[in-house]
Amino acid sequence: MTILGIDIGGSGVKGAPVDPAGGDLLAERFRVPTPQPADVDSVVEAVAEVAAQFDGFDSIGVTFPGVVVDGVTRSAANVDKSWLDAPAARLFTERLGKPVTVLNDADAAGVAEVAFGAGRDQSGLIMMLTFGTGIGSALFLDGVLLPNTELGHLEIDGADAELLASDRIRETEDLTWEQWAVRVERYLRHVEMLLSPRLFIVGGGVSKKSEKFFPLLDIRTPIVPATLLNNAGIIGAAIAAGQAAAGPGAQHPGAIPVDAAAPA
């Protein structure tokens, strides 16, 4: 089975066909800029433009930067408000003519890392955090996803944590790595206090520069960079679509509860 994975990001919409059994991209990624504003109609068309570059796939997985329940987008912190309560899976399915599964983007990245990356064969409570436009989170217990945690919105000093410690804030406030690490450490310690995870996996573009800030963090939990980098969302979306196609009894690392990523 070949599945198309498409990752909707803050700056780009990118996709590629994936072998969900091995996590390998079967062709070079294709990317288009994320529309501005990122309203429903514009983003659906951008996803269709990416999908049109490929053929031979059976179904499609799409990531979304917000909460997704039963294929419906329930939040829109970093996209246009027209996405609130939008029937995303149905809209994509109607436009693309193939079964589409939609899930949170950080959850997708985490599913990929647990299946094929830094979280593979890890037991206990594992947390994937993506530092980018915001802070995305994916939480796994013994390899099973607890969807839509949105822990980047934990309150610190009366504001969302991602307004303190996202990679976008590091860039817009021109913070040094040392200054930013202080903020990231505060956030991670808050998460440690609440959840006591066994492992932090850090993704997002900044994970490629982990050597610049990991040594500056004083936390109790082991922390490692994600290994799949910019392909994680694409791969995780394809895994989710493969699970949906196989039915609720399918077993796979990073397995998703059936209500979290339902096809239309």
Results as ranks from 00 to 15, higher is better:
22 G>W: 08
58 D>H: 15
72 V>M: 15
58 D>Y: 05
54 F>D: 06
70 D>L: 06
38 A>D: 08
19 D>I: 13
80 D>R: 01
75 S>F: 04
75 S>P: 06
61 G>R: 01
33 P>D: 12
66 G>C: 09
39 D>G: 09
29 R>P: 11
21 A>I: 03
17 P>E: 03
77 A>G: 10
32 V>H: 07
62 V>I: 13
55 D>T: 14
38 A>R: 02
24 D>Y: 02
35 P>K: 05
32 V>L: 04
65 P>M: 03
66 G>L: 11
18 V>T: 11
39 D>S: 08
40 V>C: 04
73 T>M: 12
51 A>E: 07
50 V>G: 04
58 D>C: 06
82 S>G: 14
23 G>H: 11
82 S>M: 11
74 R>V: 03
70 D>S: 12
77 A>R: 05
72 V>E: 15
79 V>N: 10
42 S>Y: 02
56 G>Q: 10
26 L>A: 11
15 G>C: 13
60 I>H: 07
60 I>M: 08
67 V>N: 02
29 R>S: 13
35 P>R: 09
72 V>L: 11
82 S>L: 08
63 T>V: 04
72 V>G: 11
46 A>L: 13
79 V>M: 12
26 L>S: 08
71 G>N: 09
50 V>K: 04
57 F>N: 00
59 S>Y: 02
31 R>V: 07
50 V>Y: 00
38 A>G: 10
15 G>Y: 10
36 Q>R: 13
47 V>S: 01
70 D>I: 00
69 V>F: 06
61 G>V: 09
57 F>D: 04
71 G>F: 10
22 G>C: 07
51 A>F: 06
27 A>W: 00
38 A>S: 08
69 V>K: 13
48 A>Q: 10
37 P>M: 00
43 V>W: 02
75 S>Y: 04
62 V>C: 09
56 G>R: 12
65 P>E: 02
27 A>E: 14
61 G>A: 05
64 F>L: 07
56 G>L: 08
34 T>S: 13
47 V>T: 07
64 F>Y: 14
57 F>K: 01
36 Q>N: 05
79 V>Y: 10
15 G>I: 03
29 R>G: 05
44 V>L: 15
69 V>L: 12
43 V>M: 03
56 G>N: 10
62 V>T: 05
15 G>Q: 10
72 V>N: 09
15 G>S: 13
72 V>R: 14
78 N>M: 10
73 T>L: 08
61 G>T: 00
69 V>A: 10
60 I>S: 01
60 I>A: 03
66 G>P: 07
41 D>A: 15
53 Q>H: 11
55 D>H: 14
23 G>R: 00
27 A>M: 12
59 S>G: 14
65 P>N: 02
24 D>W: 01
26 L>W: 08
49 E>I: 06
55 D>V: 09
74 R>F: 02
66 G>M: 07
53 Q>C: 01
31 R>H: 05
67 V>H: 14
38 A>M: 01
64 F>M: 11
49 E>F: 03
66 G>I: 06
28 E>G: 15
19 D>R: 08
18 V>P: 00
42 S>I: 02
22 G>D: 07
62 V>F: 12
36 Q>D: 12
61 G>H: 03
40 V>G: 05
80 D>Y: 05
21 A>S: 13
19 D>H: 06
82 S>V: 02
26 L>I: 04
73 T>S: 15
54 F>I: 00
